[in-house]
Design a protein around this nucleic acid. Structure first.
Lengths: 329, 329
DNA sequence: ATGAAAGCGCTAACAA
DNA sequence: TTGTTAGCGCTTTCAT
């Protein structure tokens, strides 16, 4: 029960505790002693205490990944990217789910400090997110998906371009009344994507009443469902819709299917991938967002900062990839 | 940069470090001193070091959740359940993704020990999984989804029943040649679900050649796709299929859709939910597995053990819920 | 109720 | 190369 320590190993191996520590940290130790230590460690099933090491070093090989919705495949795909890079570098990743609540987010940021994590990658819960405390500790922070008002590194999608090209694909396919269901207005990604839709549509149809075709929802399946129902109940319903994220897209398509309006009868373009869709892949236009790549990029940037990189903060904007529906209307 | 400690707070508040500690641990301190300490702590933006506390106490308010596939919604749904219960009790959850690899799993189990986590919830990567080391430390372990040969608490689904009722639903709907695509044969959940299928089908069709209709795949979308393609290329293809998990189901339905055999033209029953499907919910039979509930149950059991509960180990089997397709063939 | 002091397991500066 | 030793920040006995 009482864990075995470097002192136990040292005694069995006939060396000092410091030598044991050195063996496990790769600093110069003679071959014989090194072997003696390893043998003793194996014999005693020694597992070094990260806790003690962290306390001593004032830093742990752990990075925090703070996201608003762990059940959204977009974020889990990103988490995979982060994890792959981090574990390659010997870091472990603590995944924290905020449910888009600022107070939960604050708690996790405190924990990051309190556990001496070396850095944090965060998709902020809202504009209200408070990074002051963690930045005051000098820990590096990388913002993903959403940008912040803080002077930190960031990795974001080309959101306006995504909204624009999704919309253009529907225009090119001949749809006339193209609605937009976006995420919460106060989230910058949502606003930017909507502005891309607005620009494309205004360009093609200068006289269209855009605001009548615009809905804001939560970034969740039920948000997409509710907004789609509402759009269908309009006196003059849209003949196509752009979904502001993957889950909204799922909800919208579900409702359309239930109403017998399976795409492409009503045109659908989704910003974000639908990894678990059962639709024919050619029925819906998708603007693929490179979520995994976002995670990989963020993790690399964070590790550079942890390594002492002091250059001015950067924001990387990731290109997205249009896959237009190929089935004729 | 150097973090503020209880010593700094103590000095500002004019008390001893021990008193500061007591304030943050809820032991008896006079009202005035308590207030002085809180004020000083706020002023200095004091964040107590979990690392130091963990080292001293030899235990941290962290539980490890080790799963084979973080991108599978089944596991993220479960993670939500774990997280909700844990954070309610003041614990944080570290999510560890093993990719179904035993060596990654061992690494995470070592980290759990090394970080003094209070316990672990694990969906084992395989039969080879090695829990000896962590059990030797006396830490509680709860096995989820898959059972183990170790004497630990467990929470599992009623897998055989799930396989049987999925199959029966297809039989009742009038399908004749009902294939099965299961997960890897060596994983017990996969084997049990398959045996449920086998039993139901053998009962209804004593002369059927079951093995010709059985395929094993990975528990992933591509596994389902490959197996379904193979089934369709048989001289006498099946007219229905049972998918051994959610991702296999997605893959199978994708392939069917691409071949113009949208359910219910070919009958489909899936063991597990399809949270992001865009199908009409009535076209496919689903055996809902209560993943969130599994997480909740496991977390509660683990917390009881952490609290000192010493009763003999238990395994909870969770009931599932059949939602038969309601669209006629 | 409060303070003094020891020590959790490790690392790193200093000596040898 | 190796050992000795002083903490990292906290909790917790033991006195007071």
């Amino acid at each position: 029960m009482g864990m075995t320590t470097i002192y136990d190993v040292a005694e069995l191996a006939g060396v000092s505790p410091a030598t044991v520590s050195r063996v496990f940290n790769g600093t110069s130790v003679s071959v014989e002693k090194s072997k003696a230590v390893r043998d003793a460690a194996k014999e005693l099933k020694f597992v070094p205490s990260r806790t003690a090491r962290t306390l001593r070093r004032q830093s742990s090989e752990v990075i925090g990944l703070i996201i608003p919705d762990i059940e959204n495949p977009y974020f889990t795909e990103m988490a995979r990217g982060v994890e792959d890079v981090a574990s390659e570098a010997g870091y472990s990743v603590v995944l924290c789910n905020t449910d888009a609540q600022v107070d939960k987010e604050s708690t996790y940021l405190q924990i990051a400090i309190s556990e001496n994590m070396s850095g944090v990658i965060i998709a902020t819960a809202s504009e209200q997110s408070d990074l002051d405390l963690i930045l005051a500790t000098g820990r590096p922070v990388v913002a993903v998906d959403r940008s912040t008002t803080y002077d930190v590194d960031g990795v974001v999608m080309a959101n306006r371009a995504a909204g624009a090209s999704a919309t253009r694909a529907l225009i090119d396919a001949g749809y006339q009344r193209i609605a937009y269901i976006g995420g919460p207005e106060h989230i910058d990604t949502a606003a930017e994507r909507a502005s891309g839709w607005r620009a494309s549509l205004a360009h093609a149809q200068p006289d269209a009443d855009l605001e009548a075709l615009l809905r804001f929802a939560t970034f969740r399946v039920d948000g997409g469902r509710a907004a789609m129902e509402e759009l269908l109940s309009m006196p003059e319903p849209p003949d196509a819709v752009v979904a502001g994220n993957n889950l909204i897209g799922v909800g919208a398509i579900q409702v359309l299917t239930e109403h017998g309006l399976t795409p492409p009868r009503v045109g659908v373009a989704v910003i974000g991938s639908l990894p678990f869709t059962t639709l024919s892949p050619t029925a819906v236009t998708v603007v693929r967002l490179p979520a995994r790549h976002m995670g990989v990029t963020a993790a690399k940037m964070l590790l550079e900062r942890i390594g002492g990189d002091e250059q001015p903060s950067r924001t990387v904007v990731l290109r997205n990839e249009l896959r237009a529906a190929s089935v004729p209307r």
